[in-house]
Design a binder for these strands. Structure first.
Lengths: 242, 242
DNA sequence: GGTGTGGCAGTGGCTCAGCCACCCGTGACC
DNA sequence: GGTCACGGGTGGCTGAGCCACTGCCACACC
């Protein structure tokens, strides 16, 4: 078993994470003005310069809004935040993760439909190769990553790059927590077999069938994943808080 | 006529913009190693600290990947970038904008379907109010913004917050360039009339009808928008300016 | 009393110089 | 031939300092 790779965390990374938690937890509520940078920096025990780097990132993420001479205000991320917040939200909260899966299911079906209508011959061949890579994967983790590549290629086959970026966004939310969702991929051959009808329908250029197959596939996978995520007692899977 | 408000641009903003252009234009191609920070800062005539702020933002946006002791590498944003890149891409290139509209159409239909199935009574009432606000808008710009609020509420009515964030993302790409796409909203009453069937179907809880109505609405609006975007002579719609 | 205005205190923007931590190639050493 | 120490180059972070912007309030003026 490979040693666990600890991602190196810079001071700014840690700081950004703590600030984000404080914001999402409501310690700094929406609309609220953050303490002055000098004060905040002292509070976290870092230089103002370092703090500013962290604030700058959070500002770009849509969580903060800074104005010269005034201060830094916490924004209501549900109103202005984009899908790039999903990775941090999904990592915090299984409710978000469940919602991501639901949307991934819907959009995955949409993508399969478009891909069936537009994929090139070359892309159809590439899809078959990538599917084979899933089947041949040496372990669950490799199968899981290979599966992602198939979906990426499906998105590419729509001919619409926005679908590719959306797929990236949803996977960015999913990949960091994928270890807890490996159940559907423990048997790579079986995982590939589940995925095969989608690839076949897309390769054959059958939009309706591709959409239906994708819906079946994503629903089945989601079920196994979320089932393995919840304690047998069965907490509610997706209770949108408030 | 109100004076044109010039958005204040900080040095970091300008620098970030220039760097991003240089990356998207291919001056710094994917996989390439950027020059050292000290050198880059000197080249742009700013302090290393300031440059680092700009780099830090681009890194978070997924365009760069920095490693201590090694350097800063340009990433292939089509592979790893998320949907949050859309605002900058759509602002640069009408091709991207057209793709955003296509996806917005597909996802808008999806959202209408889910909203019809799940909306609360309160949300149905709110939708009617927001639709009325479109009709009552004093001018095209106000109607356009009111229209956005209707779509936001539709996304909220799905009960899935991911749809709300996705909607935000797509609108974040659309709003900065909305002035060029005002044609469908010049007559607020007419714009509201086009949107009305969607709101009605959602309020009545009819998923199939809502999806169909949303598809019709978004397709019609898209047509007017993209049509107005092109000169009558008919230049190619999606010319990425090299 | 109402009005305008100048100054001031507080805030973020940006710079500067410097040291630290990390990676890697090189060459001495075993 | 393998190992390891070292140095050059890179990004990470600091601390102090000054500048630019905003809002407010006391003051002078009408």
């Amino acid at each position: 078993m490979p040693v666990e790779i600890i991602a190196r965390q810079s001071v700014v990374d840690v700081l950004e994470h703590r600030l984000r938690e404080d914001i999402l937890d409501g310690t700094h509520g929406p609309g609220e003005l953050l303490p002055p940078e000098r004060e905040l920096a002292a509070g976290y025990g870092v230089t103002r310069t370092t703090l500013k780097h962290a604030l700058s990132r959070l500002e770009q993420a849509g969580l903060l809004s800074t104005r010269h001479g005034i201060g830094t205000r916490v924004r209501d991320f549900l109103r202005v935040g984009g899908a790039d917040l999903l990775p941090m939200l999904a990592a915090r909260d299984n409710g978000w993760l469940a919602e991501v899966f639901e949307v991934r299911g819907h959009i995955g079906a949409l993508i399969a439909r478009r891909a069936a209508g537009r994929r090139t011959v070359r892309q159809a061949r590439r899809l078959a190769e990538l599917l084979e890579a899933v089947a041949q994967a040496p372990d669950g983790d490799a199968a899981q990553l290979a599966d992602v590549e198939v979906h990426r290629e499906l998105a590419r086959a729509t001919g619409n790059r926005v679908y590719l970026l959306l797929t990236n966004t949803l996977f960015n939310a999913y990949l960091p927590v994928r270890a807890a969702l490996r159940a559907p991929f423990e048997d790579p051959a079986e995982a590939a077999a589940r995925l095969a009808p989608v690839v076949r329908a897309v390769a054959d250029g059958l939009p309706d069938e591709a959409e239906a197959a994708a819906t079946r596939y994503l629903r089945a996978t989601e079920k196994i994943m979320l089932g393995s995520l919840l304690p047998p007692g069965g907490a509610r899977p997706a209770a949108p808080r408030a």
